[in-house]
Simulated assay, not measured.
Amino acid sequence: MKTNNILIFVSFIIVLTFPSIVDAQNNSKKFVVVLDAGHGGKDPGNLGNGYREKDIALKTVLAVGNELEKNPNIKVVYTRKTDVFIDLFIRGKIANKEKADLFVSIHCDSHTSQAYGAGTFVLGTHRNQTNFEVAKKENSVIFMEEDYEKNYAGFDPNSPESVMSILLSQEEYLDQSIQLAGLIQKNFTSKLSRKDRKVKQAGFIVLHQTVMPSVLVELGFLTNNKEGAYLNSKKGQQQMAFAIKDAILSYKSSLETNVSDYALNKNTDESDSNSFDNFTFKVQIAASSKELATKPYNFKGLSTISRLKEGSLYKYFYGSSPDYDAAKTLEKEARNKGYKSSFIVAFKEGKKVALIDALKSTTN
């Protein structure tokens, strides 16, 4: 895999940066992380240098889970804790049933060369043939499953067209998935000095089955003599597991920071108003690589739609108000229209700013 891969987005992608602050304030619900050890049972995964992917993935997953379980506010769910074969669609069902906040699938890569390095994938289109080949290897597991044609509606992992067809059905959580994937890659490279194979997109069927932020981690290449030995060692598995665990905690912390800072400002504000000095709040509902007309027929009947281009994407926002409580009402309206993962963003003098900065700036 080349190291200069960059993300390329599908033609219309609904994306999400952070979930609703209101939802995150529900402290009665633990933060649920589903950990998925790739392969298992009759499916050994790749056997580079005689190592077994299924064993390394499982040991790493259990190490990640063991650390996360030390946090009383986190519930860890495993798709498998032993050497058993689990259908890909069942893995997704487990996560969906638990209403998980995150889904993390762990694997090891292989190649005919001495390629090496760690990479993290999110669901999306392939930039090149190499990304497709990685996804094809992981997706080919479905041929070991009974009734795979029925369970996957004729999906063919060997067909790029078939893989592309699954992408638009799991769109809402792409930005969140990229956020987590970026944190994982940062830890791999900065803390462990692993070669950075970047955050990339590919059509992994196991990610397609989930309805929450989801990533697939390729820990490295078992076919590389040095890296294979490292990943097969207890030290390597523990180090990689800690890097993943720390990324998950950082992701969770970023959500909680927004909540606690808002609550603090609410408690110390002597005014009953939730207006913020020079800030305007809008509700992000969608994003697209295409420039869409900001008309109600493009946005399920919602009017007062505005548009902002960021990088290769056009982001679309519903409503506008200097009052945060009014923005929450707008968010509720958007969700009732079907934009279940819409979220509030802040602007100052026409420029998008961090929500946390706006929430810290209550007027007196």
Rank of each mutant, 00 (worst) to 15 (best):
N73A: 11
F89G: 01
E161G: 07
N128L: 05
A135S: 10
I94W: 02
Q201P: 01
L168S: 14
Q170M: 01
D196G: 10
L68A: 10
V199G: 08
D83V: 09
Y173L: 05
N71A: 04
G124C: 12
G124T: 12
K99W: 00
K137G: 00
K198I: 00
V211L: 06
P157I: 09
H107E: 01
D196A: 12
D156S: 13
K97S: 09
L167V: 14
I90L: 07
G65W: 10
A115V: 01
N131C: 12
F121H: 13
K191D: 05
A95N: 07
R91N: 04
D156Q: 10
Q201G: 14
F103S: 03
C108F: 01
I178Y: 05
Q209W: 01
R127T: 12
G154H: 08
I205S: 11
A153H: 12
Q114Y: 10
S193V: 07
G92Y: 07
S140E: 07
M164Y: 11
V76D: 09
I184G: 04
Y173D: 12
M164C: 03
F132I: 02
I74R: 13
A135R: 06
P157A: 09
E67F: 02
E171F: 08
E146L: 11
D156A: 13
G182E: 12
I142R: 08
H208P: 00
F188Q: 07
I178T: 09
V104E: 04
T210L: 02
H107S: 04
F132H: 05
E172N: 14
I90Q: 12
K99N: 13
K81H: 02
K93R: 13
Y173H: 15
K81N: 09
S165E: 10
